[in-house]
Design a protein around this nucleic acid. Structure first.
Length: 412
DNA sequence: CGTCCACGTCTAC
DNA sequence: TAGACCTGGACGG
């Protein structure tokens, strides 16, 4: 679940679910986990969470006894402890009844209630980790979402760093500067600005301001500028890559309780939100680190020539189950049409929308028809159909839109 | 059944 | 710049 927005949503989930809940006893770890034990035991404590970029910190706070003379049991904590988590590729938190512990619940905090409940850190692949008495990793930069000004300043004041010699799409994954950006966010952000992914990062960034005067909450006040200037500013504003590194992730947070790989119920909203990542019609290439970069149009001068682009094989959207919201699914009225934007006309190849399988969808027809109308039909990809899980219409339409398989240009 | 792919770091050659 | 570290879902045969 893991890019900045998901980590933040995880912190909101913990605060909401654990608000008012009293936890007790030791923190327990699964036998299979290689992460450290969390040496914290307490008769009564509370749990709160905060996030920063791609990390979440839980704070375990002992509750003082009413009885001032009651001593803290030996071996029991009387001071707060922080535990910092990184989610790897599949981490998330869940708060469940003890008998409903999720599979792969590797670290567990037990409530004091009668039938107790458990806050679990769940991580199927175990790439995630936690650190008792931890602090935010010092090598990671300021949070792209909640430390926007310092994030910006940190990037702009280090443009001479050799790190910026690399293609912008690869630099966006460098957590020293872009703490919170991950693979789907880099694709969405560059797509919004139509920036070729394999252009030298410094070229794209130099020229931007260290300070975003047009900051969020303060929409340029008392500034008497002529319309022209204003327009220009607006333009720059919307075209500012660093600003999008802040605002695009916040859009995901605002979708409410989900993000990548969330509960199936709400997942369709996230899918509908994606404009490029895994979307039919978009191209993809493996970057120099072997990560799939999704984009549209020109790859840019530093594109891995050689290369291996992703196998044109399977793609699938999983939809498991972790939703940080309680909201029951409301009828998804998301209109497909609104979510869809202009379709790209067939690019040189690589991926084209695939044809849909006759199987389920039917309402999709329209969309598809539209797309084909604008798309040169020279393609033939085998389309693989991703199961998308969401049964209702919008969902179908959405999944249809993005389910295509891609066909990589062959590798010669 | 087997292959490929996945929201991310880490560290070893 | 490669693996290593893991599980599991979607596909292909």
């Amino acid at each position: 679940m893991p890019e900045g927005p998901e980590l933040h949503l995880a912190s909101l989930y913990v605060n909401k679910m654990c608000n008012g809940v009293v936890f007790t006893g030791p923190v327990r770890k699964s036998d299979v986990s290689k992460s450290p034990d969390v040496p914290f035991t307490c008769e009564a404590y509370r749990i709160t969470a905060t996030s920063r970029g791609k990390e979440v910190k839980l704070t375990l706070t002992p509750i003082k006894s009413d009885d001032p003379k009651q001593r803290v049991k030996s071996g029991h904590a009387d001071q707060p402890m922080a535990v910092v988590f990184r989610f790897g590729m599949s981490g998330y938190f869940r708060f469940t009844k003890e008998e409903e512990l999720p599979k792969h619940a590797h670290l567990r905090f037990y409530s004091k209630e009668k039938p107790c409940r458990v806050l679990s850190y769940v991580d199927a692949r175990r790439f995630g980790s936690w650190e008792p008495n931890g602090t935010w990793q010092p090598e990671r930069g300021p949070c792209i979402m909640f430390e926007y000004n310092s994030f910006r300043e940190n990037v702009m004041s280090h443009l001479t760093d050799r790190a910026f010699d690399r293609p912008i799409c690869e630099v966006l994954l460098n957590q020293k500067y872009f703490n919170g950006i991950g693979n789907y966010l880099r694709a969405e952000i560059l797509f919004r600005l139509n920036i070729p992914p394999f252009v030298p990062a410094r070229t794209v960034l130099e020229g931007l301001e260290s300070q975003d005067l047009f900051d969020n909450e303060k929409p340029v006040k008392n500034e008497i500028t002529d319309t022209k200037t204003k327009k220009k500013r607006m333009k720059e504003e919307t075209a500012d890559l660093l600003r999008l590194c802040h605002s695009v992730p916040l859009e995901v947070v605002n979708l409410g309780g989900k993000g990548y790989d969330p509960e199936k119920a709400d997942y369709s909203d996230f899918e509908a939100w994606l404009q490029c990542y895994y979307v039919d019609g978009m191209k993809s290439l493996r970057d120099h680190n072997g990560r799939t970069m999704w984009f549209k149009g020109d790859p840019g001068p530093m594109a891995p020539k050689d290369s291996k682009s992703p196998k044109a094989k399977k793609r699938a959207k999983k939809e498991d189950d972790h939703d940080y919201t309680d909201k029951k699914k409301v009828a998804r009225s998301r209109s497909v049409s609104t979510s869809k934007k202009k379709l790209v006309k067939g690019e040189a190849m690589t991926k084209m929308p695939n044809k849909e399988k006759e199987a389920g969808s039917k309402k999709i027809k329209t969309e598809k028809a539209l797309r084909e109308a604008n798309t040169p039909h020279h393609e033939k990809k085998s389309a693989r159909r991703r199961k998308s899980s969401i049964p209702d219409q919008a969902a179908c339409a959405v999944s249809q839109r993005r389910s295509g398989r891609v066909t990589r240009q062959s590798a010669k």
